[in-house]
Design a protein around this nucleic acid. Structure first.
Lengths: 219, 219
DNA sequence: GTAAATTTGTGTTAAATAACATAAGAGGCC
DNA sequence: GGCCTCTTATGTTATTTAACACAAATTTAC
């Protein structure tokens, strides 16, 4: 993702630096919300961020996870439509913001930057299409296994090489996996009983990854 | 979508024309398949095309629909990965194909073309994110109503201003709506009983669109 | 044009998941 | 430190949807 910065020419780097503002967000603070007009390109410098969408009733689906240094918030601007999802900090986070019109100006003159966004959008779209099938066709166990592996992939593991480096409520885990909180809790307990994971409060340790992958794969 | 052609300069139009090949596809013929390497930009000139993904067991999810003149098949190339979905003709169709490396060459010199793809990808990604929530959170009736409205939107209506301009099997309708064929048939029957639609074989006539929208909206 | 194959339609049963209820535990706040 | 709120845990029931079975209708292939 730092490829974005590398795509810039010296004068463009100057413009970006001059228009870059840093903002701190508290745990659970909203960065932007559905239906708002997209104006900023956000750059996560420190912390963890979720992009999510509210659906029917009080249900929420977490769509994407961000870690430092990743960029987000640009899709709706490019689509010329209001945000269809919201973004919030999982934990206390530091973000940089650049006005999208500045980014737009640079893109129109710098093809490497355009290619950067084409590449990012293409990868995200492939991921979103795959997510559709995973969330609609897999059973609860498969979906939860998916989420645990995704979290490990995205945020990495502690020094023990097993504990997932994120502190997540059961509700967030449920919203990531398209299930109720009760079912996330129950299924997590089942995984503990089957010795696939160890749970200590919100800390989750993967102790049988191959089996977790098998559950993820076959539903 | 013709904006793509308009984004090209005269010399680029010549290059595209010289590298453009026309191909005919029969009903249900596969244009490209999951896991293949993306090499062509496809342009649907005549007919109807579905993009779909195979999931668990024999289940299939239709992800996007194409009509003339729309372009597809480029996402995986830009993401530098094999196709994660397949494309096939709903009915006898005519397509144009341009090697992606030609498109790539032009993009790197023509920012308007780059912006065209950024815009298309951004719109598709927003649609895909919305689809995730619709398919996972709505009930069967809401999902089927969604699909009927989507089909009408995408392919238009016959001269009567009500009959959807596509001839689709119940199985395709089910695969679009994330449900079994039995449930698509049953729910369609329910909609007929409720006088929301009229069905004559594979022809579907929408006779109470407001109510269909209401069902789509609330689940 | 006709037989075979596929699709449609419907009933019945089984499985998966949500909804609800409630208690225990943990964490934040003054 | 203790009270209050939110989160976690677990049991029970209700709802939704899939799975299966089979007959009738339609389409396809030769």
């Amino acid at each position: 993702m730092a490829e974005m910065w590398n795509a810039l020419r010296p004068d463009e780097k100057r413009i970006v630096t001059e228009n870059f503002t840093i903002q701190n967000f508290k745990k659970n603070q909203i960065i932007y919300a559905e239906k708002e007009t997209p104006e900023m390109l956000w750059c996560l410098l420190k912390g963890k961020v979720k992009m999510y969408k509210s659906g029917i009733g009080d249900r929420v689906q977490i769509l994407r996870l961000y870690r430092p240094v990743q960029y987000f918030g640009y899709r709706a601007y490019f689509a010329q439509e209001p945000y269809v999802s919201s973004a919030a900090a999982f934990e206390a986070s530091t973000l940089g913001a650049i006005p999208m019109h500045i980014v737009d100006d640079i893109i129109r003159k710098n093809n490497d930057l355009a290619m950067f966004f084409i590449h990012e959008l293409s990868r995200n779209l492939g991921g979103s299409d795959t997510k559709i099938v995973n969330l609609t066709q897999k059973h609860i166990r498969g979906r939860l296994a998916d989420s645990l592996l995704l979290l490990a992939d995205n945020y990495g593991l502690e020094e023990d090489g097993a504990t997932i480096k994120i502190y997540l409520s059961r509700e967030d885990l449920a919203n990531l996996s398209n299930m109720t909180t009760s079912n996330a809790i129950r299924t997590l307990t089942a995984f503990v009983t089957e010795k696939l994971i160890l749970v200590d409060g919100r800390k989750i340790k993967i102790i049988n990854e191959p089996q977790l992958r098998k559950i993820s794969k076959f539903g």
